[in-house]
């Protein structure tokens, strides 16, 4: 009994020790990975003196904020994928931010008209083609991939990954659900193997000769080129911007929202502004090869070398609306099975 009480006391002490808070700090729930976010936050702390506490997770953070309600310590939620930003907004977990800096830095199509969410970077869903067997395919479109000539030639990651869901959602938004379904069935029939791995793994599969085409976000190519082990994979493919003659390439975003019950609102807005400004935008571009939203900040040299492209002008919100339909469609055609 005595032992139990001691243990309970020790445990309570331990629990509370992690609970102490500082006045000058800001709390971030991040879907984005530490290797990218941590250096940016270090810069912010160095500049402002505000301590940044981060919780990284790839799943369930939205549910956690929701559960924590008015007591949530989260000030900001950082995430990729427009549908997550919209979900946070739609579920009433955010509050609007009226900041001149933000509206100056971020072009109107990349922020919520109601000022709840703000995109920080954009990324393209590219189609990679084998340099050896195919060569550059400048005119390729997403819809082509369902054609019979691509049979057994395509690799992709799980259809349920947000990047693919978002692509499917954009096809639904453009073509309607019925046509999108036909397209998705065709795409599934053309897959060289069951969807698996991440975007890099698809490029690797092209290099290994398992398939000729792979779906992948643009920044992965940059990261592979920077990795001595993976550079040979990257060199085996050409990067193509799809749908240049039609709708334009599908573009997704990463972004940030201010939590509804943010306890450190002032600091949080400072951090949001910092993220939209030159230093952070530059880092996003250089460290992770994403396209900065701030127009005055240039993409990295490598990314710039891929040339300019036409992005799909359809408002992101329209695509995000089709998110649920896309997930259901993926189930209907049993894309991953």
């Amino acid at each position: 009994m005595k032992k139990m009480i001691t243990a309970a006391a020790a445990f309570a002490a331990l629990s509370l020790s992690s609970f102490t808070t500082f006045a000058d700090e800001v709390n971030v729930y991040s879907f984005r990975q530490p290797f990218l976010i941590e250096p940016i936050m270090e810069k912010f702390t160095a500049q402002s003196g505000i301590k940044v506490n981060i919780l990284f997770a790839k799943k369930g953070l939205i549910e956690r904020v929701k559960r924590e309600g008015a007591l949530s310590p989260a000030d900001l939620v950082l995430t990729t994928d427009i549908s997550r930003l919209m979900k946070l907004t739609d579920q009433g977990l955010t509050q609007p931010v009226d900041s001149k800096v933000l509206s100056e830095n971020i072009p109107a199509q990349y922020r919520d008209p109601g000022q709840h969410w703000f995109a920080l970077t954009t990324r393209v869903r590219n189609i990679y083609s084998s340099s050896e067997r195919i060569g550059p395919a400048a005119d390729i479109s997403y819809l082509d991939l369902a054609g019979p000539e691509f049979k057994g030639k395509i690799c992709t990651r799980s259809g349920k990954h947000p990047y693919n869901v978002s692509l499917v959602a954009s096809v639904i938004a453009h073509e309607g659900e019925a046509d999108a379904k036909v397209w998705l069935e065709g795409l599934k029939a053309n897959l060289a193997r069951k969807p698996q791995g991440n975007d890099r793994a698809q490029v690797k599969a092209v290099k290994d000769g398992l398939c000729d085409y792979a779906l992948g976000n643009n920044y992965y190519l940059g990261k592979m080129l920077a990795d001595p082990k993976q550079v040979s994979w990257a060199e085996a493919v050409d990067i193509n911007f799809p749908d240049q003659k039609t709708n334009g390439s599908h573009v997704n975003v990463s972004g940030v929202v201010l939590a509804k019950y943010a306890p450190n609102k002032e600091n949080a807005v400072k951090l949001m502004e910092f993220l939209s400004d030159d230093t952070a935008q530059q880092m996003y571009a250089e460290v992770n090869y994403e396209y900065p939203v701030k127009e005055s900040v240039q993409p990295s040299k490598l990314v710039a070398s891929w040339g300019t492209f036409k992005a799909d002008p359809l408002p992101l919100a329209e695509i995000a609306k089709q998110h649920e339909a896309a997930v259901k469609l993926l189930d209907e055609v049993k894309f991953d099975l």
Binding site: L14, S15, T21, R67, L71, S72, P73
Partner: peptide
Amino acid sequence: VGLLFSGTLFILV
């Protein structure tokens, strides 16, 4: 007192 249970190691444990 904030999230005394759900914001600490208590909930993890």
